[in-house]
Design a binder for these strands. Structure first.
Lengths: 220, 220
DNA sequence: TCCGTTTTAATTGTATACAATAATTAATAC
DNA sequence: GTATTAATTATTGTATACAATTAAAACGGA
């Protein structure tokens, strides 16, 4: 893996794991000395992150972690609701014992992270479950798009998520695996749709956005 | 629009209109003198085009117009087949006389370009019809993705297309507009699916070669 | 002529310098 | 003391220089 790619991965990880919260500034020189490269390499990475909507770059003002709008948040989830259930069919056709075991390991990782209370790795593992499943459907163009949507979802959850956004109350991913094991494609599709919809519902879209503080009253 | 953006648009246009054929090399210094900027700006644009799969960059070997593999070609079309029909519902709900007229104008442009035999603008207009329709569905995340898929389709057609890939034999886009006018959502969905499938079928999957390009004249 | 090696040229990778712009602080007038 | 302006600092935008790498040409021996 190239050096640029490693830097990209590290920053992206920090963003989706909420170590760099939405709105955090990302000055080029600070990053360049942190990673031990010149600004040139950092700029390249930031441009990429901007194209993928993980950061926003304002001319002459630099980059900061994207704080998705409410519209963007909903659209990201809606996109997943439209695509991911449709991929189940392809997943089912590639399903076998080996895959089943591999994904159960992933679910196990999710559980462990959640038990220990490590929000960061829990989010990471959950996203990974979804986009590795997408890869199995056999269309890498769509799989890449879903992967990006999963990461963007992490950012959305950072901005608007609640506890149940991470470990949603419709049950865990192992239920889906069981349905796939049993060859119940339709039910698996329905499960996936419901799963994503419940994540969407768990978002709280209000409050912290633009709170216009009335200093007059506050200090009178 | 920033200067970078203008350069990006021009190169992208040249690619999707087949003036820069798949496989064409894009040396940084040649482009930088053609556009009158330093290599820095050109590199930025090339990186973006690479992320969007319009060019491929090989380390120490530079960029060239992507020649999509057969797999990629099929996956791009399959992605559209999966997504675009699903957007019809949202399109229908936003449909009105004004939109109808706007899209009929677009179809008119397609016809004119085709009459004159201008492959380039014909391809451009056809892509535009599809992604502007996608925008109407009300999900800008998906619309952006569909837009990219449409442009990538132009590249696929450059590599594997035939005459009927651009002006497909299942009839023109005005048929879809009529269905939308009549509120026949299901039929419109089916039409869209069939339309994209017939484009996919029109591809002939085998290869060809490259040539030499005068960047100075192309971009002056 | 053909093949392999060596040398040369062309091209990209990375760092740095300087200019342009925005943000912050200091200064001044009222 | 406050508000407005000026000066300073910090940060990004762009071009260029040089190193690293690859591709191409020249060369020599069989």
């Amino acid at each position: 893996m190239s050096n640029d790619e490693k830097i990209y991965q590290k920053i992206l990880k920090a963003i989706v794991e909420h170590q760099l919260p939405p709105g955090a500034r990302l000055p080029e020189d600070r990053l360049s000395e942190a990673f031990g490269v010149s600004r040139t390499g950092i700029r390249k990475v930031l441009q990429r992150l901007a194209l993928e909507h993980f950061v926003v770059i304002a001319r002459n003002k630099g980059a900061q972690v994207n704080h998705p709008s409410e519209d963007e948040a909903l659209e990201v989830l809606d996109s997943r609701i439209l695509i991911e259930p449709q991929l189940i069919e392809g997943v089912q056709s590639h399903w076998n014992a080996e895959q089943s075991e591999r994904f159960r390991d992933l679910v196990e990782e999710e559980h462990e992270a959640e038990q220990v209370g490590e929000m960061a790795s829990s989010i990471q593992a959950t996203a990974r479950f979804h986009y590795e499943l997408a890869q199995l459907a056999g269309n890498s163009v769509l799989a890449t798009f879903v992967e990006q949507l999963c990461y963007r979802s992490s950012l959305v959850i950072a901005a608007y998520g609640t506890r149940s956004s991470v470990s949603c109350d419709c049950g865990d991913h192992s239920q889906l695996l069981t349905l796939l094991d049993e060859g119940q494609t339709k039910k698996a599709q329905a499960w996936m749709k419901h799963h994503l919809q419940s994540i969407k519902k768990s978002l709280v879209l209000e409050g912290q956005e633009e709170q216009n503080i009335d200093f007059q009253r506050l200090f009178s």
